[in-house]
Computed example of a mutant assay.
Amino acid sequence: MTSTAASAAVLVDGGYELAEGGRWVDGRYVYVDILSGRLFELRDAGGPVPRRLAALDVPLGAVAPVHGRPDTWIAAAGTGIALLDADGALEWLDRPEDRTPVPSRMNDGVADPAGRFWAGSMAYDGTPGAGSLYRTDHDGTVVRVLDGLTIANGPAFTADGTTMYLADTAVGTVLRCRVDPASGDLLGGPEAFARLRDGEGSPDGMTVDEENCLWVALWGAGTVRRYHPDGRLLHTLTVPAPHPTSVCLRPDDNRPDDNRLFVTTARYGVTNPTAASGAVLSVPVPVAGAAACAWRGLL
């Protein structure tokens, strides 16, 4: 295992309370500021100037593009899953967290290679076991797949869609689940892929690179880790903010000598934040990632 201090550039400085959910979509980097319910994009051609795409009156955990519907997103927002159009209007598919015993919200989410959307939830007060993982199928049905989680975070899939990684942030564990791409069903229960010890941070947003390795943002530790598929820790990057929240690797796009890792960070919980907290960071790395998958449903 190697460890280095990342040569991170601040693309967008610390104006966000809880930036999260960074994804590469149609040649642009999109991300959210969860607590303010805002969605942003950064385009290569436009330089490091974010453009706000939406501002909701509920928290916005993450989005994925909707196949065949430009400028429409499927969103983990508020207490459920909704379609978000270019005008910022929400069409709710379901609000399962309205039916929970403690006040809760949706958190991170991602579409899988088969076109389903997966998103986790958490209680506002971090009640142990109050979080769940949901899957939104092609017909718009929202299914609770796992419960008993605390802060369900960072779903990330391998390119073939047969493996999903899921973080339970509060208990410091990254889970690995086998998935049937045809049905979306889990094949057996989740297994522990990585366990973080006290002082190593809490696993947050994740992504899988072109070599099938897993990158994990570690809240509270100011680091990003890269794991081999067999669970070996390969590398640790130190970033200039204590709370990295999500990681996104830019696809190759014919730029093999300019691979980039984008990292969102939080100001939330930071006593003396700098410009790197609540920011978007860019870090040169030796490997590329893949563009975000789209949700394929309800056309």
Rank of each mutant, 00 (worst) to 15 (best):
A111D: 06
V142T: 11
M164I: 10
D253M: 01
G115S: 07
T162Y: 09
L166R: 03
L18R: 03
G222Y: 06
V247N: 07
L146G: 06
T79E: 13
V58M: 09
D57R: 13
S36M: 12
A123L: 04
R144P: 10
P65S: 06
V247T: 12
V63I: 11
T158E: 15
M106I: 00
T271R: 14
T72L: 03
L218K: 14
V270Y: 03
A266C: 08
A75N: 02
G115C: 05
G222C: 07
L234V: 01
D198T: 14
I151E: 09
A217K: 12
G201M: 08
T238Q: 13
W219S: 09
M1H: 13
E200H: 12
W219T: 07
V174Q: 02
N254D: 15
E210M: 10
A86R: 11
T238G: 15
A159W: 12
L187H: 02
T2Y: 11
A152F: 00
P59E: 04
Y16L: 14
V32W: 08
I151F: 04
A192H: 10
A152L: 02
T141M: 00
R260A: 11
Y165C: 12
L249R: 05
G201A: 09
P48C: 03
C248R: 13
A19N: 07
A152V: 01
L35I: 13
V12C: 12
L90A: 05
T79I: 05
